[in-house]
């Protein structure tokens, strides 16, 4: 009984350390994106929520040094769907004593990238999937990791524009 109790404690401790250590992976995760419902000929805002693991940073979309690799979102929409005006947040200015006076423009923790989705009038009604990816390159205070790509996808449901009820009230045929 005592032995199995010790074994169980060991396993729990092991699992807890493993779970904590998972946070040491320099990954960037993309939160699931809900279906965008957009009318034919209409537009909507797309929000992409990203999260960098604690202890790491990725370069912002506009790094301070031209040799650094920016974080970039690429989206490949189907024909007739346009994704324009991708907006990245401004980077946080990070100073690391180990690398001297140079300040880095980075993202840490949670950040959002937004864009505008436009649906042309010719697009068929129904759901269409958009695939894309986030390219990033992560570092911590002492080391950098090779550039990586995180896939992303979301659905767009194209619906018929609502027929507006006319506010025009016909005059009584009796009024002349």
């Amino acid at each position: 009984m005592k032995l199995s109790h010790s074994l169980a404690s060991f396993l729990l401790l092991f699992c807890a350390s493993a779970a904590l250590a998972q946070g040491t992976s320099p990954s960037l995760s993309v939160a699931p994106i809900g279906t965008l419902v957009i009318t034919r000929g209409g537009k909507a805002q797309l929000d992409i929520a990203l999260q960098v693991n604690r202890g790491f940073h990725v370069n912002s979309n506009k790094p301070n040094d031209e040799l650094l690799l920016p974080t970039v979102v690429h989206l490949n929409p189907p024909q007739g769907i346009m994704i324009v005006n991708i907006q990245y947040p401004a980077g946080e200015q990070l100073a690391l004593p180990m690398i001297g006076n140079e300040k880095l423009s980075v993202y840490t923790g949670a950040f959002n990238v937004s864009a505008e989705v436009r649906i042309q009038k010719s697009v068929a009604l129904g759901t269409q999937r958009v695939h894309g990816e986030v390219k990033y390159q992560a570092c911590d205070n002492r080391q950098c990791f090779p550039p990586k790509t995180a896939p992303l996808e979301f659905d767009i449901k194209v619906v018929r524009p609502k027929v507006r009820k006319s506010t025009y009230t016909p005059a009584s045929p009796h009024i002349r």
Binding site: S4, A8, L11, L12, F14, A18, A19, A21, Q22
Partner: peptide
């Protein structure tokens, strides 16, 4: 026993991600 089994399952899960 349940804790041990759960622990083993969790360990397998984490080790998979680890490696």
């Amino acid at each position: 026993m349940v804790v041990v089994v759960a622990g083993l399952l969790l360990m397998g899960k984490f080790r998979g991600k680890f490696t």
